[in-house]
């Protein structure tokens, strides 16, 4: 019994230390962190806000595909908040560098595995982003740009934030593990970013896409990364259970792929510099 508690305590200490190291790493380079995590989201928001305002003004349109200007702006504000919660760091780049430079060798020997270490880095990032997201939410609400949703909606959005963050964590991990075969993985990572921004409703709400494309997209993970959670936050009635189920299936697929890729990759791995 005592040894069981000792093991739990040891595990807890390992997680705590890794989390602390990662937090201090991020907070040591505060300006860098802000420039990487916050500024891009704000710039994108500013572009979309101006673009849609200009589109509505020059086309003298009351509504475009059911969206009035204020609804479109509200949609973009919710994307801003949601992105600040779920935006993921350049994990895959670090992972592929670790693999290429042979740095994962130490994790194969340490009593704290590579996957656990990456997970602790992810948690520390999420912790900082949680505060950034909450702060931004209060700023946006205080200025009256969006209304505070009901507790039920906030809870559903919270579940989506968790699931979408998990999706990105696994996706980044999978891309990072490609470094067992490829020299560079950043182009895959960036391509996924472009595709997901395009197919997730980041710039244009998905109901503006041709109907056949919108229908097909519902079976992919993309709409659930931004469009669906944002529509929920806007108070639309969406089948949350179905949406979460599809997202869960994709996370599961990613998880299985990661296990396979990790096992196969490790067989190919040569620890450089040992």
């Amino acid at each position: 019994m005592l040894s069981f508690f000792m093991t739990i305590r040891l595990e807890y200490l390992k997680w705590l230390q890794s989390l602390k190291i990662s937090l201090s790493k991020n907070l040591n380079y505060k300006i860098n962190f802000l420039l990487m995590m916050v500024i891009p989201v704000l710039v994108y928001f500013a572009i979309k806000y101006n673009l849609w305002s200009s589109i509505y003004a020059t086309n003298s349109a009351e509504s475009i595909k059911g969206y009035t200007l204020s609804q479109m702006i509200e949609y973009q504000f919710w994307i801003l908040i949601f992105e600040l919660f779920v935006r993921s760091h350049f994990f895959s780049r670090n992972i592929s560098e670790d693999i290429r430079l042979g740095r994962i060798s130490v994790f194969l020997l340490y009593p704290f595995g590579f996957f656990n270490y990456q997970l602790s880095l992810f948690f520390s990032d999420k912790l900082i982003q949680f505060f950034i997201g909450i702060f931004s939410f209060f700023v946006v609400v205080t200025f009256g740009w969006i209304d505070i949703p009901s507790v039920g909606i906030l809870f559903r959005a919270g579940v989506f934030i968790f699931m979408v963050s998990a999706f990105w964590f696994f996706a980044q991990l999978l891309v990072g593990f490609m470094a067992f075969w490829l020299e560079e993985t950043w182009s895959i990572n960036i391509s996924i970013r472009f595709i997901s921004a395009f197919l997730s409703g980041f710039i244009v709400p998905l109901d503006m896409y041709p109907e056949i494309i919108s229908k097909i997209l519902l079976w992919t993970p993309f709409p659930y990364l931004i469009y669906i959670p944002v529509r929920i936050l806007m108070g639309e009635s969406i089948d949350v259970v179905f949406s979460l189920f599809i997202l869960f299936i994709w996370i599961l697929i990613l998880f299985v792929c990661i296990q396979l890729v990790w096992r196969k990759g490790l067989k190919l791995y040569t620890g450089a510099g040992i």
Binding site: Y29, I31, N32, F33, L34, L35, M36, I39, P40, V43, Y44, I47, N50, L51, S53, S54, F90
Partner: peptide, 22 residues
């Protein structure tokens, strides 16, 4: 990395016409 991100934001901004901005 952050400085390079800032550079990329300049590229994002200039990919849209000036008249969309107020």
């Amino acid at each position: 990395m952050g400085i390079n991100q800032l550079r990329l934001q300049v590229q994002h901004i200039c990919r849209w016409p000036d008249f969309i901005y107020k």
